[in-house]
Nucleic acid binder design. Structure first.
Lengths: 221, 221
DNA sequence: ATTTATTTTTAGACTTATCTAAATATTATT
DNA sequence: AATAATATTTAGATAAGTCTAAAAATAAAT
């Protein structure tokens, strides 16, 4: 059983080391968690003594197998609760994160497994991120999302992750219907929103991260 | 915003001072919360400085208006989550307490109000205890429950709080159907289970607290 | 290859909530 | 009313997690 702080570090380390598999830097972890480098060092020592991370002074840190497993269980809970909040309590995508940050720490395997069942064992959360199963296994989306496309690339829209009426209404309204050929013109670092050109309509639209993560595309060759 | 420990003390004080409105004793609070008297004193000082309790050294403690309000909000959350766990996730009554002890501390008014709505604004939880509304207002059950009947009293069963198939099946099976005249023969302190005599059947049954709190009765005069 | 800049770690302090053991107040008993 | 018993509070310690400021290690620059 891990403390709330431990769970938050494990989750952060998972996200950070997936982006840079060679390990995470103390300062970067501190910035990510909005804390100080010295606090990070303290916690890394603690997690290391619990065999949850591989850590050597000044050498960066990676999750151990055990640590990765624990992190995935927290991520599983976070994403399932987000799904629950949107699906069963009609919250909007952008409202659920903070509440899920709290709910992900509720200690009960039985509870989260029943929530999973209630929701019909979803594979992806409302942001288009994959939900690990009870064993920590998950599948990446078999297509690319618009989120993952670099600047300059031309792609064709071939599907959506979220199929709610409200989402479909939105993408139809801005012209991102299935089959449309589009081009990623710019990625704004601030919130990872994208400027998209739609040649067939001779227009451009600004697309949020939440939208881009829910639009599936094929690269045009 | 109160800490988890503060919320637990407020809840405990509410339960303890409802039983004895003249105030709660340090040692009794300590026993109730499975902690030490000195820890209780520390926390009472803290709650007092936050104007959540009326506390004078050696003189016992009562909740302030503000403290009572906060306590009722925690109790509201606890009972609504219990209801949710039983009603939507098919947990049994005896399984839900521990999980609800965690969920009651999730900070989001919007969340608990939506859970309330999802459940249809129930007035009583699965244990037959009243659920305060968003303003802290609640109604005691207009009839007596079997739980509240003293030894020796004869009563007639006139209803139930829980009307699930599983509960009705149970009370029919043990002979506690509506209209039946019964007598409380003994109350076992250990778990507040009751020995009930059913003269019409010439039998006696042992009834748990969870059952007794869900059976409504009228006193036979 | 030194010096400089940056990153990381240590040392020591602070907060919250807890504890033990000693001190003090209250209540009960003779 | 004095003493004994009990209840409550204080004093000081501990653990988790955080912080600031100083020290040490690593990386970059001349």
């Amino acid at each position: 059983m891990n403390t709330l702080a431990e769970e938050n570090y494990l989750k952060a380390l998972y996200h950070l080391t997936m982006q840079t598999p060679e390990g995470a830097y103390t300062n970067y972890i501190a910035a990510y968690l909005q804390t100080k480098a010295s606090s990070v060092t303290d916690m890394l020592k603690k997690l290391s003594s619990k065999k949850l991370v591989h850590y050597k002074k000044y050498q960066g840190v990676t999750l151990s197998k055990k640590g990765k497993q624990k992190a995935l269980q927290v991520i599983r809970k976070h994403r399932l609760w987000e799904y629950f909040l949107v699906e069963k309590l009609n919250f909007r995508w952008d409202e659920v994160h903070e509440i899920a940050e709290q709910l992900e720490h509720i200690q009960s395997d039985e509870l989260i497994n029943r929530i999973d069942k209630l929701l019909g064992f979803p594979k992806y959360d409302p942001h288009g991120d994959p939900i690990p199963d009870a064993n920590g296994y998950y599948e990446e989306i078999p297509f690319l999302t618009l989120f993952a496309i670099p600047v300059g690339e031309m792609v064709t829209i071939c599907g959506v992750i979220d199929s709610s009426v409200s989402f479909l209404k939105l993408i139809e309204n801005i012209g991102l219907t299935i089959g449309t050929l589009i081009k990623v013109e710019e990625i704004f670092e601030f919130d990872h929103s994208l400027k998209i050109a739609i040649p067939s309509r001779k227009t451009k639209v600004l697309v949020s991260q939440q939208i881009s993560k829910n639009v599936l595309v094929k690269i045009k060759k």
